[in-house]
């Protein structure tokens, strides 16, 4: 098998190729504003480094977030389009699970990423492979009781380290497609179901219903 992994749900634009045994190549660039520009060249580079071609890919896995929507969609639509052209399965994995897997932790911990607007996306884990809660979006202050002193990884935990007081400075801070690919390969080998490749937005779109039209006649 040849598995292509993509994740654009965090400031990291990351791509990796896994052959069922190990990682063949990985690209990781952290630039929250250029997901659209960076992703395709990264795919091209990773394939080139591994000496493989896109049409050899047999499975695609994509981080489905949660993450800031504009960047998140770049990875999702790219994965869906590749899947359609290559006629191969496209699987989703929770982006936080990739960070959890990369931590290698064997004790309970939390993963938190930056959700902007002074909030974090987060979830609790029993160990690096086992998520205990559905991903959620919350204000860090509202989590203080639950996360104080608990080991924590991810840029959200680093950003709000007065709340995530157990934050591990050694990381992982950002998503790695290599971790996502390794986790997916492990789950697929074990015959586990992955997620559908659909976004976890966790928030409704911002949309103000306009009040009745503005009266222009002076009162």
């Amino acid at each position: 098998m040849l598995l292509l992994a993509l994740d654009t749900a965090t400031p990291a634009v990351t791509v990796a190729l896994h052959d069922g045994t190990g990682i063949l190549a990985e690209s990781r660039q952290v630039d929250a504003r250029r997901h659209g520009e960076l992703l395709l060249p990264a795919v091209d580079r990773v394939l080139g480094e591994a000496g493989r071609k896109l049409d050899e890919v047999s499975e695609i896995v994509v981080g489905v977030g949660p993450g800031p929507y504009t960047g998140l969609r770049v990875g999702l639509v790219t994965a869906a389009t590749f899947g359609a052209v290559l006629d191969v399965p496209v699987h989703g994995l929770c982006t936080l699970d990739g960070l959890a897997y990369a931590s290698g932790l064997t004790e309970p911990f939390v993963v938190a990423t930056d959700a902007r607007r002074k909030e974090v996306y987060w979830a609790r884990y029993a160990d690096a492979r086992t998520r205990l809660t559905e991903p959620a979006v919350d204000r860090p202050a509202d989590l203080a009781d639950q996360v104080a002193g608990v080991p924590a990884v991810g840029a959200g935990a680093l950003l709000y380290d007065t709340v995530f007081t157990g934050v591990r400075r050694e990381g992982p801070e950002h998503q790695s497609a290599a971790a996502l690919a390794a986790l997916a390969a492990e789950k697929l080998a074990a015959g586990e179901e992955l997620l559908p490749p659909r976004p976890l937005y966790l928030r409704r779109p911002d949309a103000q219903v306009p009040a009745n039209y503005k009266v222009v006649t002076p009162k």
């Binding site: 659209g36 992703l39 395709l40 795919v43 091209d44 896109l54 049409d55 929507y69 504009t70 969609r73 770049v74 639509v77 790219t78 869906a80 389009t81 590749f82 052209v85 290559l86």
Partner: peptide
């Protein structure tokens, strides 16, 4: 911007894969 990005990303993936 966000709407354009969906189409541009899809077009790139489509062109590259083909």
């Amino acid at each position: 911007a966000g709407a354009l990005l969906v189409g541009v990303s899809a077009a790139k993936a489509y062109a590259y894969a083909l």
